[in-house]
Design a protein around this nucleic acid. Structure first.
Length: 567
RNA sequence: UGCCGGAUUGUGUAAUGGUAGCACAGCAGACUCUGAAUCUGCUUGUCUAGGUUCAAAUCCUAGUCCGGCAGCCA
């Protein structure tokens, strides 16, 4: 097979796709113009794997001063829906891209595609075939076994034309006839063995309604849609590599304005994640998640709700690169990208997820004071916030141990810690309930340590977060972990067996009052805990926080050495 | 066993015949009012075998292994 892409290599700083585009621009191919397209089928929501393709398609157009179209590849009405068309546009814009021209649809080209098919028949390059699906399967042969020619192969063009028109007019049932390209039943490439290019499908189309009862197949519609739009570089994933000869063949038979170059790259695979639309659809249908935008989903809608930023996803896409090697990217890299973005941009706030009350016995009852704390130590321009303090506070249960090891830097009977941005606190005693569980801590603070510094210069290793009980805002925390326990769930016998039963844990706790009224979508770093994003489920009475990702936690590793890495 | 691709440290990715580099992860240390961030250091790699060459991840030959392809899905 003549392969235009063979031997193509990346230049310094350029991945192999950009290297090809760059070379084409420099050699004056297509008049030096670059036109790409992102062609989703509107049969599901976009996911992080699509983000890689979007960044490539739109990114290349942007970098080379070209255009990028958004075209719905809507040639199979039984799977597609307008809901997806809308979601796809929203997600692309959210990611930070805007298509050139108006939104395009392959279905807009149905009349022209029909005429192209007619032209192909006239040229003796296509015929109407009445073999059933089962029969043709037999005729097609196998990868290592040549096919046989359909008895209809030499049907006169006039007869095929008539039949094709009658297919269009709805005279036949689904499956009665298909239109086939007449290529080569002995080709070592199965896609060249007289592939079907039009089939009868009596399903209403989300845009063309009942206007058509025949629909072009992907191989016919896609290359011609590209050609109609003057696409110069048609970038797609590896599984279409074997389709390229067919792509080039069809374009080569017809009078079209240009011959786009198809370039294939490896799709993204992420550890502990599934990327198959079919499997994602199944999770939604079987209510294993709350919907396409469940924050555990790898969909852009889910990640957005989870608190991911478009910039972090774009940065991730750039970092993983583009190659033809089918790899499995460590989800830790994605997490690194969101942490590093959020670290620079999110306001800090204190939140207690599993509250334990601490009473400061030497602090006057009824008294309140405010401590100043940086909104974001990484960004001095963000200024300060005021955090109220009083005699009773909540701390996190994880920050107290009754019989701690030496490596535990937090609160314990007789130990002193720093309350973040406030003062030094020593635990004197614990209060238990009837079952012997610790339900309250009795503490004292050092009145000379206001602001968190000990006047005598003594070192206090541990700093913990807290919330004043009198001022605390009750909140729901949705603590997300990876959806799957297996590194590659798609490779398992049943991916659903790999679901992580602890992928969502809901907790009731408190946050500092400064976050009152934060709009859905607002992102915060809960100090020492993780990054959180306000969920749309929030109400005036109860804000809901989705945990985007935890902070890295060295103590976690000390405490229970390396399972298979936390989320 | 047919065709088409692919193979660089644990993971991902550079090096276009001339010092195998970067990021993530891991480990060790420094710093620290977030066990975060930051900073420093460290470990680990060219699928194999031949060949060409002063010099090979890169070029040639032969193999090995992995992925994709037999929808009237895209």
């Amino acid at each position: 097979m003549p392969s235009e892409n063979n031997g193509a290599r990346g230049g310094p700083g350029l991945d192999f796709v950009r290297a090809i585009v760059d070379a084409d621009v420099k050699s004056g191919r297509n008049g030096g113009k670059v036109v790409t397209r992102f062609p989703p089928e509107p049969n599901g929501y976009l996911h992080i794997g699509h983000a890689k393709a979007i960044c490539l398609d739109f990114g290349i157009a942007r970098e080379f001063g070209g255009r990028c179209h958004l075209r719905m590849d809507d040639t199979n009405p039984s799977k597609e829906d307008e809901e997806y068309v809308n979601a796809i546009q929203e997600d692309i814009r959210w990611l930070g891209f805007e298509w050139d021209g108006s939104l395009l649809y392959a279905s807009d080209y149905f009349p022209r595609l029909y005429e192209f098919a007619v032209a192909l028949i006239r040229a003796g390059k296509a015929y109407v075939c009445d073999l059933s699906q089962e029969e043709f399967k037999e005729y097609r042969g196998a990868p290592n076994k040549p096919g046989r020619e359909s008895p209809c192969r030499n049907r006169p063009a006039g007869e095929s034309l008539d039949l094709f028109r009658r297919m269009k007019d709805g005279e036949f049932e689904e499956g009665r006839y298909v239109l086939r390209a007449k290529i080569d039943m002995n080709s070592p490439n199965i896609h060249m063995r007289d592939p079907a290019i039009y089939r009868i499908k009596k399903a209403p189309h989300h845009r063309t309604g009942a206007a058509w009862v025949i629909y072009p197949m992907y191989d016919f519609a896609h290359c011609l849609s590209d050609a109609i739009e003057g696409i110069t570089h048609s970038i797609c994933t590896l599984e279409f590599e074997v389709h390229r000869p067919l792509y080039d063949w069809i374009i080569g038979q017809l009078d079209v304005p240009c011959h786009p170059r198809q370039i294939e790259f490896a799709r993204l695979n992420l550890s502990y994640t599934i990327m198959s639309k079919r499997m994602l659809q199944q999770l939604v249908n079987e209510k294993l998640v709350s919907g396409w935008d469940d924050p555990r989903m790898p969909t852009l809608a889910g990640m957005r709700r989870r608190g991911y930023t478009p910039g972090a996803i774009r940065n991730f896409s750039r970092t993983i690169g583009v190659t033809k090697f089918e790899s499995l990217t460590d989800v830790a890299l994605l997490e690194h990208c969101i942490r590093s973005d959020l670290n620079k941009t999110s306001p800090r706030v204190m939140g207690v997820i599993r509250p334990l009350k601490a009473v400061i016995e030497n602090y006057p009852e009824g008294r309140t004071e405010n401590f100043e704390a940086a909104v974001n130590p990484e960004d001095p321009s963000a200024g300060n916030r005021s955090v109220p303090f009083s005699r009773e506070i909540y701390i996190d249960r994880d920050d107290f141990m009754e019989n701690p090891p030496k490596s535990f830097f937090r609160l314990a009977p007789g130990r002193e810690v720093r309350l973040r941005s406030a003062c030094l606190l020593t635990c004197r005693d614990v209060v238990r309930n009837g079952r012997g569980e610790v339900v309250e801590l009795r503490c004292v603070y050092d009145p000379d340590s206001r602001g968190g510094h000990a006047p005598d210069g003594r070192k206090v290793k541990g700093t913990i977060h807290w919330v004043s009980a009198a001022h605390a805002l009750e909140a729901e925390f949705r603590l997300y972990d990876r959806l799957f326990n297996a590194e590659n769930p798609a490779a398992a016998e049943d991916f659903k067996d790999c679901l992580n039963p602890a992928s969502l844990q809901v907790a009731r706790g408190f946050v500092e009052p400064s976050v009152r009224g934060a709009a859905p979508g607002s992102r915060f770093q809960m100090e020492r805990t993780g990054y959180f994003c306000v969920d749309p489920d929030s109400t005036a009475e109860l804000p809901v926080f989705n945990r985007t990702v935890t902070l890295k936690d060295t103590w976690e590793k000390v405490r229970k050495p390396a399972p298979s890495a936390p989320g």
